[in-house]
Every structure is written in structure tokens, then in C-alpha cells.
Amino acid sequence: MDPLFLQHTSDGILTGAIIALGAIGVTLSMTILRFANFGHSELVTFGAYIALVFVSFSGIGAQPIDPFSIGWPFFAAIAAAGVGTALLALATDWLIFRRLRRSNAARLTFIFASFGAALILRNLIMLGFGASPEYYSRELTMAILIPPGIRVMPDQILVLGLTLVLVVALWAFLTFTRAGLAMRAVAESPTLSSVSGIDVNSVTRWTWILSGGLAAMAGVFFGLTVQLRPEMGFNLLLPLFAAAILGGAGSVFGAVVGGLIVGLAENLSVIWISPGYKMAIPFLLMLVLLYLRPHGLFGRGER
């Protein structure tokens, strides 16, 4: 097979894994919170920058672990980013969305508000860090050569492994814990669940915590393998939504598959068309799917 094709495929899987992490949060909020949260992208950005702050404080003296570009403190930074972003997600809910729920606002009002929140958050990052790109580490690492000629960075393999662990952990959480069961029940039917004594408020909190935490992971992984910029999340927004919709809103498995499809499509597209259009690919893919299969690949018919 053409090595260029294989190289783009391997890059596509990595991008796809990161998109999948973000798309899970989008799909959770679409089904449990019942609105498309356009602020989700900024949770991605905040996660990445929280880890950056943590790394720049603790980075001194931290030797990178061969062959990776980062040292042990980085794992603490990942944890800090997850916790910090989950708290931020809860804060936006408490400040904005909780009030809208209380006043029984229409679903589209939530979307409006999420756009406003995104605008504020994104520009706060811009205010604090400026527009120039940042990196977790300036350490140079050697690419690993996989025959017949695919180059993969050690950091990319690490990210892929961590993503796999996270997705399995999430699946276990949703399948085996009470909170996970409650989340699935509310996604199915909020009215029936509240009648059956499920605490919908607690489910809402869990949803924000999970989607915030996963968004932060997506941000940190993107920052590690690409770079950090204030608009990194905003640029990921369309791929995230495309992945969530491709997979069928509400399906975690679908979001992961959707993420991989979007990542692959984005990266493989540059073989045939100008890379300038790369960002439009997820959207075009989504539009085609909406024509053909409005409920996504794995979704059920809910309108």
C-alpha cells in the first residue's frame, strides 16, 4: 500500500481518538442536558491551558521519560486539567444553565447562552495567554518508524493508549455504577426517571463532570501532539459535532466511531484536495449523512 496513505491513516486515527473524547461529551449533553452545547469546545481549550499552567509551575527539574517529551509531573497536570475543567463546567451550569432550567427556557435559548459562554471563555484565554502558540515541552523526540514507512511520535502512541483507557473506563462507569445507570435512564426519558426517584440534578452534575473531564483530556492530548492556541477548541467544534452526529446523538460507542471517521476523513482528504479545505471536511461529511441517515449511524429515531 501507498506509504503516504498509511501515514495519513495513522495520523487520522490519532486525530480521531482526540475528537472522540470531545465528541462523547457533546453527545452526553445533547441527550441528557438536551441541548447542543457550543461551549464544549472551550472546555477543551481550558483543559489544555490548565495543564499548561500546571506544567510551567512544576516543570522545572522534571526529566522527560524516554522516549516521550514529557515527565512524570505531566500526569499530575492531566489530572489537574480534568478536575479543573469539570469544576469549570459545573460553574457554567450553576451560573447560566441552572437559571435557564429554572425559568423553563426553550431549548434554543440554552444554545444561545452556550454560544455566549463560549465567546466569553475563549476570549478570556486570549486575554490571559495571548494569541501565540504554546507547547508543553520543547523536548525533541525521535519518531518511531513502523514498516513500510509510517512515522509515529512516541507521544502519539501514549495519547492513543490513554484514550483507550479512558473510553473503557467511561464504558464501565456507565454500565456498572448507579450514577451511570441513572444517566442512561435520564437520557432515555427524563420524566420517567424522575418519577422512578432518580435525582435528575445529580445526573446533570455527573454529565457536566464527565463531559468537562473528557473535554479536558481531549485538549491536553491535542496540546501535547499538536500545539496550544486560544482557538484550538473553537476549531475542533465542528469535528466534535460532526462526530457526535455521525455516531447518532446519544451513543457513546457511536461518538467514538464517529470521531475516528471524522479524523480519518480529515487527514485522508489532503491526498485529494487542498489542505485549506481540511476544516470543512467533517461538516460536509455530516451534511451528507444528514441527507442519507438523519439519525446517525448508530442512533435511534428521535426527533
Binding site: 441541548f35 444554545i111 479545505y277 470543512a280 444528514l290 438523519p294 428521535e302
Partner: peptide, 22 residues
């Protein structure tokens, strides 16, 4: 337009980005 209302939000958002890229 036949779909759930947030899909219109997402696709119009996408079209604006695509047009700017184009």
C-alpha cells in the same frame, strides 16, 4: 429543517465556517 432544531444550529454554524474557508 426536518431534523431536531439544534441540528440547524450546528449546520448553519458549519456552513459559515465552510464559506469562510472557501
Amino acid at each position: 429543517l426536518k431534523l431536531r432544531e439544534d441540528y440547524l444550529a450546528i449546520t448553519t454554524f458549519g456552513i459559515a465556517i465552510t464559506i469562510q474557508l472557501a
